[in-house]
């Protein structure tokens, strides 16, 4: 039931006949336009040539569509020493995101299941430590983690960056699954125990299939989160596996000579494309993820 329906149930006037509503609508629409402006500007700029950028307004449509900047951003712009565009970064990010998401979501579900249904001594305190840790800046744990992973030869490797992503996403992944499972009737779990199902059998055959929607929500959260990460990639991924965000920042902020804003914006759009696509296709699930992640701890 919406507030609006409740406020005006009887023969509502048409929206254009009500000045107060008209004002509200105008406000809402202009706010939306403001929010869309950066995306609009970014797209326009990426299709202009540098010549056109200098000669036309920021908000003006390009006289002719040019894909040169996109091409350059993808395959020939300089990201530091190398000038191969950010395509390598794209593939690095893909390689990082897929295992980080699968492992983190799987572990989160397992932790959540164990915490919600199995009364384990000390598990509550462990979870509390995890939850407090989630609110602390990563920089505090950065150096010790480097020192911990270095002797295992994991710093600067794909495995290393994946492990680090799993570590730092564990609090929120565990939280959302713990809350999800805790909201299920406990009798369901007891019935499975009486049916002779063990720890893993009940998890794999019963709880996991029941949490399919949450698995999707968590996967979307985790995939966008890992894709958008900059700091961990910068420190742990190593030169070989720098994710797209780090390459993008290098491309824009460390180029020598004249800056090519059209290439910058094309590269930015390319980097933002994956999360934006996920968002466009699964916005509703994305919203559910926010609700789940912000639930009470």
């Amino acid at each position: 039931m919406s507030a609006q329906q409740l406020m005006r149930p009887s023969a509502p006037r048409r929206w254009y006949a009500d000045p107060a509503r008209l004002a509200l609508l105008a406000l809402l629409v202009s706010a939306a336009l403001c929010f869309l402006l950066p995306l609009y500007v970014m797209s326009l700029t990426s299709f202009k040539s540098m010549e056109e950028i200098r000669n036309t307004s920021l908000f003006a449509l390009p006289p002719q569509l040019s894909f040169a900047a996109w091409q350059a951003a993808w395959s020939s712009a300089c990201t530091g020493v190398a000038c191969e565009g950010i395509s390598a970064g794209f593939w690095n990010s893909v390689l990082i995101v897929i295992p980080s998401t699968l492992i983190a979501v799987g572990l989160g579900a397992l932790n959540g299941y164990a915490l919600a249904f199995w009364r384990l001594r000390g598990a509550g305190s462990l979870f509390a430590v995890l939850m407090i840790g989630a609110f602390l800046p990563i920089q505090v744990m950065m150096l010790p983690l480097v020192r911990l992973l270095a002797p295992l030869h994991l710093v600067g490797t794909l495995t290393g960056i994946i492990i680090v992503h799993v570590i730092f996403s564990m609090p929120v992944m565990t939280l959302i699954f713990r809350n999800y499972y805790a909201a299920l009737p406990r009798e369901l779990f007891l019935a499975a125990r009486l049916d002779g199902a063990g720890f893993l059998y009940a998890f794999l055959r019963l709880m996991l299939p029941m949490s399919l929607p949450m698995l999707a929500v968590a996967a979307i959260m985790q995939a966008t989160g890992v894709w958008n990460d900059y700091l961990l990639g910068l420190v742990f991924a190593g030169r070989e596996h720098l994710p797209m965000t780090v390459q993008l920042n290098n491309l824009v902020n460390t180029t020598t000579g004249t800056r090519e804003y059209n290439v910058d914006m094309a590269a930015t759009l390319l980097t933002a494309l994956v999360p934006l696509l996920i968002y466009a296709l699964a916005g509703r699930w994305f919203v559910r993820g926010i609700a789940a992640g912000s639930l009470k701890a």
Binding site: F35, L39, V41, W227, N228, L248, D264, T268, Y279, F286
Partner: peptide, 15 residues
Amino acid sequence: FLYPYAMSFVATGLV
């Protein structure tokens, strides 16, 4: 209103 939240801080900063 929510789409910017899907974007990375890096992309946000650069735009």
